[in-house]
Simulated assay, not measured.
Amino acid sequence: MPRLVLALTALALLPLGAAHAAPGDLAAASAGASATSRPQIQVTAHAQGIGSAEFAAIRGEYRLADGRRLMVEGPRHRPVVALNDQAPVGLVALGPNRYVSADGAMQLVFNAHANGNVDAVTLTLQTGTH
Rank of each mutant, 00 (worst) to 15 (best):
L70Y: 02
A12L: 14
A112Y: 01
D103H: 08
P88Y: 11
A22Y: 02
D103C: 10
G51D: 07
S34I: 09
T129Q: 08
A28K: 10
D119L: 04
G128V: 12
V43W: 08
T9E: 12
R38Y: 08
Q42G: 14
P39V: 10
Q40M: 08
A112K: 01
V89K: 14
R38N: 12
N97F: 00
A10S: 14
R69G: 01
M106V: 07
P79K: 00
M1S: 10
L6N: 11
Q107P: 03
A22G: 12
Q42R: 15
T9M: 12
L8A: 09
L14I: 05
A19E: 13
H130G: 12
I50G: 00
M106I: 10
Q42H: 11
I58T: 02
A45R: 15
F55E: 00
L125K: 10
N111V: 09
T122Y: 07
V80Q: 14
L123T: 06
A31N: 06
N117K: 12
S52I: 02
S34R: 08
A35M: 07
R59K: 15
F110K: 01
T44A: 08
N111Y: 01
L26W: 07
A56V: 00
L94A: 07
G60I: 02
G32D: 09
E54V: 00
A22I: 01
G51H: 00
Q48T: 11
L108D: 04
H130V: 06
E54K: 00
Y62S: 00
A10Y: 06
Y62A: 05
A45Y: 11
D66S: 03
V100Y: 02
V72E: 02
A102D: 11
G32M: 04
L13D: 12
Q126I: 11
P39N: 13
G74M: 00
A114F: 09
T122P: 02
H130I: 04
E73L: 02
H20S: 14
D25L: 11
P88M: 10
T36F: 09
P2W: 03
V72L: 12
M1T: 04
L16E: 14
L91R: 02
I50H: 01
L6S: 14
G95V: 05
V43A: 14
Q48F: 08
V81W: 05
P2E: 08
